[in-house]
Design a protein around this nucleic acid. Structure first.
Lengths: 153, 153
DNA sequence: CCTAATCTCTCGATGATCGAGATTATCGAC
DNA sequence: GTCGATAATCTCGATCATCGAGAGATTAGG
């Protein structure tokens, strides 16, 4: 066994641990705002899509969070009821509904996850350009491997 | 804005993307075996604890996956019914029940997640000792920050 | 031995999710 | 135009995961 195999195993364990803790952050946000896991995943998906300039619809949201249309309707009803988003009929294709996050939801998300992002950025101060490049390449590689496993058959 | 801020933002995004994809792997495993997310989290928690030599009990499991005792009973019932684990009364403290994973469940988990672990290890071949050390330190730092956020108040 | 504390389980209620199908809107062919 | 096919969303009834409250069993400490 190569001497760096220990490090490899530790790195793999750290990836999983990081995953668990990131989930815990999401869960904490959910609990603080009276939401469940799915609701948070949905809000994040909507926020991401909106940020990319692709308006979110119930159909796309269902794909993103892996729910059937009936469940998406219930999900959107929930979030709309507590004021986190609005349904807006698309004028171009009037079958479609565009989901728009409310300012309050954006603010809440920004405060919670923005704080985390800032702390992560701060922690990255301890790395120079070269080291960050290594980390970047590493994360790309790992994400690639994991994505392949997530999509298989 | 410093020139490496772009890299920092990208690294943060990659961390989140990795989180999403790792969840997807878990979800895929769950779907393949007729389980739900919680069931998989529970099996992983039991496997980890067992590997550390700390026998898992319903109480500890409830803390690990954040469920009330009533839900843990239902969860263990489900997993026991499909043969993924056994309840064993502890002879020392007879109030306690020790949860033991079945060989079939261990094998299924090993096949699915072991394959991923092997691919991750293979991908790490592209890094020398020094680079792996940087990655290791980075993951420790990030996990630390995230854990603090997960635990806060 | 009592009493309090601990661990697990039971029961009834709530709510998230699903499958099947209804509803409304768009598109292409004629 | 208008008709059938397709698409996006929603409704309904059923199922099951989760919870709160509390019961039953066991242990630990005076």
């Amino acid at each position: 066994m190569a001497p760096q195999d220990d490090v490899r195993r530790e790195v793999a364990l750290l990836l999983r641990r990081l995953n668990v803790e990131l989930d815990a952050v999401g869960q904490r946000f959910a609990h603080l705002h009276g939401l469940n896991r799915t609701d948070v995943r949905a809000l994040v998906a909507i926020m991401d899509a909106t940020r990319r300039g692709e308006p979110m619809t119930p159909g796309r949201l269902g794909e993103a969070v892996e729910l059937r249309s009936a469940s998406v309707t219930a999900l959107v009803d929930r979030l709309e009821r507590v004021g986190h988003l609005r349904r807006i009929r698309d004028d171009v294709d009037r079958r479609r509904v565009v989901l728009e996050m409310s300012d309050s939801a954006m603010a809440a998300g920004g405060e919670h996850f923005g704080g985390l992002a800032a702390d992560l950025a701060a922690a990255m101060e301890g790395y120079d350009d070269e080291e960050l490049a290594v980390v970047h390449r590493f994360l790309l590689d790992m994400t690639d491997v994991v994505t392949r496993h997530a999509r298989e058959s």
